[in-house]
């Protein structure tokens, strides 16, 4: 099945002010979409709407041809969303955090898999340290470990490069390009200048 998330005349009104309106977006397999705009232009809101998190939008959203709210379970099984906050619980170790993500999607997974995912993110030796003791960049890396741990077709990433060092940024750029190359789709926001060997689609807000 080919990946297809389409938005028609998408708009979002907040307290009588339109953040954006009339957006037509077709996210297909192999696409990398980058949402641009100044602070407060609704980038995060747009990503949350595309991820099916917010319901107060106007226009239509379709996943594989079906309205998003009806295809929710199916959509959720194909989505990997990384929000502004990394979603890493400070009281749990990186391994436990990853295990919980997998369990949320009904997967038991294996410890070896999770350790491998953490080591691709350069977190060997930190698997059993409570995440609260890790730096912001390391916490972000724990969240990013999900990209290789739980394969999903559609990635929605809100500022994934925040707090990541140069080497990490390059690796992540490679990973994003490879994902699109392999038929996946990425929708992301970033203030960072992307250095990706793959054509980009743009959505300009504000």
């Amino acid at each position: 099945m080919a990946l297809c998330l389409e938005a028609r005349q998408l708009g979002c009104e907040r307290d009588d002010r339109w953040l954006f309106e009339g957006l037509d977006i077709d996210v297909k397999g192999g696409d990398i979409w980058r949402v641009d705009g100044p602070n407060g232009s609704g980038k995060t809101t747009l990503l949350k709407i595309l991820a099916g998190q917010l319901a107060d939008y106007s226009g239509t959203l379709r996943w594989q041809g079906n309205p998003l709210h009806r295809a929710r379970a199916h959509f959720a099984a194909n989505l990997l969303y990384l929000g502004h906050a990394p979603g890493v619980s400070a009281g749990l170790t990186p391994l436990e955090n990853l295990a919980w993500y997998q369990a949320l999607h009904g997967e038991r997974g294996s410890e070896a898999q999770r350790e491998a995912a953490l080591s691709t993110m350069g977190l060997e030796g930190l698997e059993d340290v409570p995440a609260g003791r890790l730096s912001a960049g390391q916490q972000r890396r724990v969240a990013l470990a999900r990209l290789s741990l739980t394969p999903r077709a559609l990635w929605i990433l809100d500022e994934p490069f925040t707090a990541i060092d140069h080497a990490g940024v390059a690796a992540l750029e490679t990973q994003i390009a490879a994902h699109a190359q392999a038929g996946g789709a990425v929708v992301m926001t970033t203030h960072h200048t992307l250095n990706i060997a793959h054509p980009l689609c743009h959505i300009a807000l504000g």
Partner: peptide
Amino acid sequence: VAVISEPADKQHLGIALGAT
């Protein structure tokens, strides 16, 4: 990368609840 087509079944809910 493939789009998964089968929906999550009931048993998976147990895993998610237990883990949470």
